[in-house]
Design a protein around this nucleic acid. Structure first.
Length: 360
DNA sequence: GATCCGTGGTA
DNA sequence: TTACCAAGGAT
């Protein structure tokens, strides 16, 4: 990002007045949210991780439960992985919580249990990118650091009439460069949160509430009537479709077979029912037998579940089944469990639906 | 830089 | 219904 462009963006912009209008609006109008009750860097950090790509209303109950279960950085560092995944069940992007625990352990081991207060060190932690680093530094430590999320890009693209594509990763750096000059040095916490709160409450993606906006007089998009044309954002490609089959396998004791997903990738280390991606060529029995190296007796289809991810869609047909031998294929951890114990395991949402409809 | 990585809400 | 979205980060 060139100095020239950043000076161009802020040329003739009343930085000081803008800061004061935004900060005082935030102090008057901010929502009461559980993570705003304390500046404990750990609590701020957890909230920022949970809020990544996730709505405030969704996060609130997870955040409260998480903080009861893991009140301190040390408590989270000492937890079992299955525990933290269960606490995250249903939130999505599960690597967030595994990275968070890795990072918290790093803080305990190498930073004496104190969350780093500078960008270089905090950015070295797993799962802490440019946004989260800036958010924790400004909110918990009062450092004048930029924290550029989707709200901030939307608000600033309008206020400063920036017409770069905000879907491009490089565009974030433009806003960061601007914010090093624009962020309030007096109250970086309220300023950064104010930008995000404004984006969430007033300067919304569609039909922004310009008539209620505390910084309307500074807004170049409003001046020129372009508030509905900004930000510029390119389309993402649509999801690919995968046809799956899942089995509810019961043994003579009435137990159900579950398995743990691989260490990495999609829904890593969550539990699931035995399943495969199906092709048209062979029968279900043949395909499951190859994958699990034993023979299943597959009964009726009991339900159908659609699981929509950000980049793909699973279309899952669910069958009841029994098995002759011991399923072995692959390295997956498999176990027979009592149906009454099923709530101890963390499942992806699609498999929670299977449990609800066919096992409870 | 493009792709992977979840889920539920909404117009 | 479809498409987009919501306080991003890792690879």
């Amino acid at each position: 990002m060139s100095k020239a462009l950043e000076q161009e963006q802020l040329k003739d912009f009343h930085i000081n007045d803008f800061q004061h209008h935004l900060v005082s609006w935030f102090k008057e109008n901010q929502r009461d949210l559980p993570w705003r009750l304390s500046k404990d860097p750990y609590r701020v950090w957890v909230s920022e991780i949970m809020l990544q790509q996730t709505r405030v209303d969704t996060v609130i109950p997870y955040y409260n439960a998480f903080m009861r279960q893991f009140p301190t950085l040390e408590a989270l560092a000492e937890a079992e992985e299955d525990q933290i995944l269960k606490a995250w069940e249903g939130l999505g992007y599960y690597s967030r919580v595994r990275n968070l625990q890795t990072a918290v352990r790093e803080v305990v081991e190498h930073y004496g249990g104190v969350v780093p207060d500078n960008r270089k060190d905090i950015s070295s932690l797993k799962g802490v990118g440019p946004y989260t680093a800036g958010a924790v530094l400004s909110i918990a430590y009062g450092k004048p650091e930029p924290a550029v999320d989707g709200n901030v890009m939307r608000v600033l693209s309008r206020v400063l009439l920036v017409e770069e594509d905000i879907a491009k990763p490089s565009t974030r750096k433009i806003f960061e460069a601007i914010l090093y000059d624009l962020v309030s040095k007096e109250d970086p916490s309220s300023f950064n949160q104010g930008l995000m709160e404004l984006g969430a409450l007033i300067c919304t993606p569609t039909s922004p509430g310009c008539l209620l906006c505390p910084v309307r007089e500074f807004c170049r998009a409003y001046d020129t009537g372009k508030q509905n044309e900004l930000p510029i954002k390119s389309k993402k490609k649509k999801q690919s479709l995968k046809h799956m089959a899942a089995l509810i396998v019961r043994n003579e004791a009435g137990e159900v077979l579950i398995e743990k997903r691989p260490e990495t990738g999609l829904l890593a280390r969550l539990w699931q029912f035995p399943n495969i991606e199906i092709s048209e060529e062979q029968s279900l029995e043949e395909q499951f037998s190859q994958e699990y190296e034993t023979s299943f007796q597959i009964g009726e289809q009991v339900q159908h579940v659609e699981h929509v991810f950000s980049h793909l869609i699973w279309n899952i047909a669910v069958y009841e089944a029994t098995v002759s031998g011991r399923p072995t294929g692959g390295q997956a951890t498999r176990k027979w469990i009592e149906v009454t114990d099923i709530e101890k395991y963390a499942f992806p949402v699609s498999h929670q639906k299977i449990i609800q409809k066919s096992l409870l």
